[in-house]
């Protein structure tokens, strides 16, 4: 298989993974209007959670089953303690508080897990890979992660488009007062959305942990790329986040083949181009 095809494959897989992280951010940002800088920390906590849980369960997917509900509950607590005080405040205060959360989570991480990098094992049945060229094979686990991401994306789109809770979320995004006037408690709605965002970030951290090494600050690059995805896809749009993430994944991977020297700026050039053509993002409302 030639280099471009291999890179295309890598790009799609990378894109699917960043979709998982970005989807939670776009929900929280789009529906609640909260700029959540600590989103990357929830990714990091997911990865560390996977590290600890896998030591007990021995399997990353069992850790996922345990870790996601834990993350959701954690999200509810964080929303109740901190985030709910931010809804009527301006972006600067949101940035300040969520930035403080990053610092706190980083310290907690250091106290609990120390500063050496760790690795999370790939389950035995997914060891090895498909041979795609003479020397290179493509790991089964990466294929499994890609499949998981696609399934989750479809499930999210179904929930948001077709279910009652999805309709409430969409309504809350367009007109919060009207939703409240119809007798829906927006405080509960927001708490649910925030916790779902945390759970999604943690999910991304958990499934990515066997691919990554788990180390302090693992969430920060994820936060930045997630914001890029949200901006490209359009704030609040899951479909936009999905396509935006794939675009970025592929652009990044192909950029590394064609312009290795500028590969780290390809993603931002793409973002600038999208913003010029469609200031609201691909699926955003006109800004």
């Amino acid at each position: 298989m030639d280099l471009v095809l291999i890179q295309l494959l890598n790009g799609i897989q990378y894109g699917l993974l960043i979709f998982l992280a970005a989807s939670g951010l776009t929900l929280v940002f789009g529906i609640m209007g909260v700029i959540n800088l600590s989103h990357g920390s929830f990714y990091m906590l997911g990865a560390y959670c996977a590290l600890t849980l896998t030591q007990f369960t021995g399997d990353i997917f069992l850790s996922l089953l345990l870790g996601v509900p834990l993350a959701f509950v954690f999200g509810v607590i964080i929303e109740w303690l901190f985030i709910r005080h931010l809804y009527d405040r301006d972006h600067l205060q949101q940035v300040l508080l969520t930035f403080a959360l990053i610092l706190i989570f980083n310290e907690v991480q250091k106290i609990l897990w120390g500063s050496y990098p760790h690795s999370v094992p790939v389950p035995g049945y997914l060891q090895g890979g498909v041979k795609i060229s003479e020397l290179l094979s493509y790991p089964y686990y990466r294929i499994a992660v890609a499949g998981f991401c696609v399934a989750l994306a479809l499930a999210m789109m179904f929930v948001i488009q077709k279910t009652r809770i999805g309709r409430i979320i969409r309504a809350g995004e367009s007109n919060r007062e009207m939703v409240e006037a119809l007798g829906i408690d927006s405080r509960l709605l927001f708490r649910f959305v925030f916790a779902a965002g945390v759970a999604l970030a943690a999910t991304a951290g958990i499934v990515a942990s066997p691919l990554e090494s788990v180390y302090p600050g693992i969430g920060e690059p994820v936060l930045i790329i997630s914001f890029v995805v949200v901006v490209i896809g359009g704030i609040g749009s899951i479909k936009g986040a999905f396509l935006g993430a794939l675009l970025i994944g592929v652009a990044d991977a192909l950029g590394k083949v064609y312009f290795p020297t500028f590969s780290s700026s390809v993603v931002y050039a793409l973002m600038a181009a999208v913003l010029i053509a469609r200031p609201g993002g691909l699926f955003g409302r006109a800004a």
């Binding site: 990378y14 003479e134 690059p221 991977a253 590394k256």
Partner: peptide
């Protein structure tokens, strides 16, 4: 082959190494 610091997406370079043998 170079990767910008502190990027950790190594796949592209690995594919290149495999083709250079």
């Amino acid at each position: 082959v170079r990767l910008p610091f502190p990027n950790v997406e190594f796949q592209a370079g690995l594919a290149e190494i495999a083709s250079l043998k």
